[in-house]
Design a protein around this nucleic acid. Structure first.
Ligand SMILES: [Mn+2]
Ligand SMILES: [Mn+2]
Ligand SMILES: [Zn+2]
Ligand SMILES: [Zn+2]
Lengths: 140, 140
DNA sequence: GTTATATTTTAGAACCATTCTAATCTTATT
DNA sequence: AATAAGATTAGAATGGTTCTAAAATATAAC
């Protein structure tokens, strides 16, 4: 295995970017690989930026933000704000909820069917519901 | 009515501050009056600061933040973060939920009994649930 | 009331996540 | 290869919030 131009992960990620209409640039590919390589995760911009550094991926912080927002706009990520000092980007874009560990800042998924919301009220003034977030804060 | 050292509102607010163990300073009294004078509201620090200005209440922005956090710590307010650029302070401290109007940034209360959460999952690792927030985002 | 002590207020600096700018570079198209 | 559209970048700027340390005030002790 001397050259590994395209690993399985690479191809998958490249296809996801192309399918969403985003140009698969070196930076986006590298960041997407970091984000989507393993199971679902909740990453901050700073986290991803540092991870890139660790992997010797040269990418600016602005590009990390650009990529995260581009991915979010294309539905590859979902942005979550818990406290007013930063947001997380969730690789799990299906409908689900979260435990938020206040001490550590860690987020943990709650499958949608584990929280049954009976009788969701209609939005006032005929507004359209765009999203429902349930956040369970725990001391942990 | 030449002097009005204590109006009914003043007394109530003063008592609330004393009861919570906060010294009823001129600034806290004025801010608390603005916050609690009428029905429930969701105020940002900037909003409250400008409101104070309008009412010719001389108070620094740092004091507004200090007061909001002190009130929150004593249970007179509840802090709500929706997006990562600022938080709201809710004068309604009873258990309830929110509509969030994404266009305007407006928050509207949803009475607790209008959202029936069946089967709230236990927190992982025996952690204790400190709060459950349901935020319904609407395009409005 | 006066004094002493603890708490609060304040202006402005600092902080930190995020966004902007505009120049440079890369990708896709022809 | 030439072109045009899109992306990246360093660094400045922004905006909400917190910090600092000095001055002011509230409460407690006398
Ligand atoms: Mn964002
Ligand atoms: Mn806060
Ligand atoms: Zn999630
Ligand atoms: Zn509310």
């Amino acid at each position: 295995m001397r050259h590994k131009k395209t690993s399985v992960g690479n191809v998958t990620v490249l296809e996801r970017l192309r399918a969403s209409g985003l140009r698969p640039t070196r930076q986006r590919l590298a960041l997407a690989k970091l984000l989507f390589a393993r199971g679902h995760r909740h990453a901050s911009a700073e986290q991803l930026f540092n991870e890139a550094k660790t992997h010797r991926i040269e990418v600016s912080l602005a590009t990390v933000y650009n990529a995260l927002h581009d991915f979010t706009a294309k539905g590859l990520l979902r942005e979550i704000s818990i406290d007013s000092g930063g947001s997380y980007f969730d690789t799990n874009t299906s409908y689900h909820h979260h435990f938020y560990f206040e001490r550590s800042g860690h987020l943990e998924d709650i499958a949608a069917d584990r929280i049954a919301i009976a009788a969701l009220p209609d939005a006032p003034g005929g507004a359209e519901i765009s999203r429902v977030d349930v956040i369970i804060r725990v001391n942990g």
